[in-house]
Design a protein around this nucleic acid. Structure first.
Lengths: 232, 232
DNA sequence: GTCTATACACAGATAGAC
DNA sequence: GTCTATCTGTGTATAGAC
């Protein structure tokens, strides 16, 4: 599978995400007309990502957000009760997208080797599709309030769990080498993160998302697949 | 080489770093007595890392810093001209430690395989020794002002360059496989970062810095070393 | 549903006593 | 060299007109 095929299968736009957020938070959002609310939420998220990417969420003022969205301060406060809640909405939604979609991807294959490939690539492709969400959730995870932090940590753990289980299962089937699979899973996650954290580097190097994902799979397989006897 | 041996060779304490900063910024620091200045700088850095780790530098107020250091607001401003300058001092010094020491480490060996091992492990060990510095410089790199950003970016690039050169050189000698070495170097850096960015995860898993570094070297060598003919 | 005007707390920074 | 007291701008958030 390459990125193009992936996009066809899992395509959902930023508009769709905004709609999801609207439906999940209909009680706290004071605007009731779906079309208006969804469109404005989309503008708000986009602006938060843009400003947040440059200087971080804490350094973004509500006036910055007002300027970037073209909405007034008063209007903004009809979409969330405060700056902290806005952060919470984005964080929890970002992580839940990630968790849900990766779970779904992992269920499309049975063979451990195929499953490992698809889960690794799927994560990279997903992070390409929703890069601002991934970048933001990673960089701003610290700022989330303790209540939500627990949920966020558990979602982060569950994505690593998926990888670990594949490695364990593959070892049992004699396909993968034995080893510290938790540690390997952590390393894989680190490399996946590289794509959305340092995206600018790979644009400069002219590395496409497909090349990146393939390279990553190559590294993991070189390490994990059992070598033929007599080989080093 | 393991972490213990590394520490013996490259040991310098947080006090030493504070002294270095003092000597480099003697003109802008209003306190002239070395002993006092160095001790207070050390306290300040420690406090910045502690608060910054929890909520980020932007969210840290000077009053937070005053409370944590036990120094008054007025005193703090005798050590730097403002919050922005303090950030700049920490950032540029953090990156320069990293660059200088890695350069030094890479010069201790000639054979590409040995050199690769030592540079990879050295980075991990260095980040263990100066973890707060590494974490902080990574997470707060965005907040640095444009003038300093250029310097920071170039230092980051140079550490990746060291890895790339080793891989290229090893390929020429027939020790390493051909491939996109820039890309591989980026992946290695990503895994190295994992250690200081997600340190809590590995403490929970009971993974030591030596185990982590060895695992990382294992992954890289499995991918990079030329396989014997007939092997996959 | 969106706007302008404004309340009020807190930020960064400084002056000047000790 | 360190402190307390204070200035001034900016931050988040709200009230109420349109």
């Amino acid at each position: 599978m390459n990125y193009k095929e992936f996009k066809k299968l899992y395509a959902s736009s930023s508009r769709d995400i905004a709609r999801e957020v609207f439906l999940n938070n209909q009680d706290s959002i004071q605007i009731k007309k779906e079309k208006t609310a969804v469109a404005n939420l989309e503008r708000i998220f986009e602006a938060v990502f843009s400003i947040g990417y440059k200087k971080g969420y804490q350094a973004m003022s509500m006036r910055d957000l007002s300027r970037e969205t073209g909405m007034s301060l008063g209007s903004l406060y009809h979409y969330f009760s405060g700056k902290e809640e806005l952060l919470g909405i984005i964080q929890t939604h970002g992580w839940s997208i990630m968790k849900r979609d990766l779970q779904q991807i992992s269920e499309t294959h049975e063979d451990p080797r195929e499953k490992l490939r698809i889960v690794i690539k799927g994560h990279v492709f997903l992070s390409e599709l929703f890069r601002p969400w991934f970048y933001f959730t990673f960089m701003e995870a610290r700022s989330v309030k303790p209540t939500e932090l627990k949920a966020v940590k558990s979602m982060e753990g569950s994505t690593q769990q998926i990888l670990t289980e594949i490695l364990v299962c593959g070892e049992e089937q004699g396909i993968f080498m034995p080893g510290n699979h938790e540690l390997t899973a952590g390393m894989i996650k680190a490399m996946q993160q590289e794509w959305y954290l340092k995206r600018w580097k790979y644009r400069k190097l002219n590395v496409s998302v497909d090349q990146f994902a393939e390279h990553l799979v190559g590294i993991v397989e070189a390490f994990c697949l059992v070598r033929e006897p007599g080989c080093q």
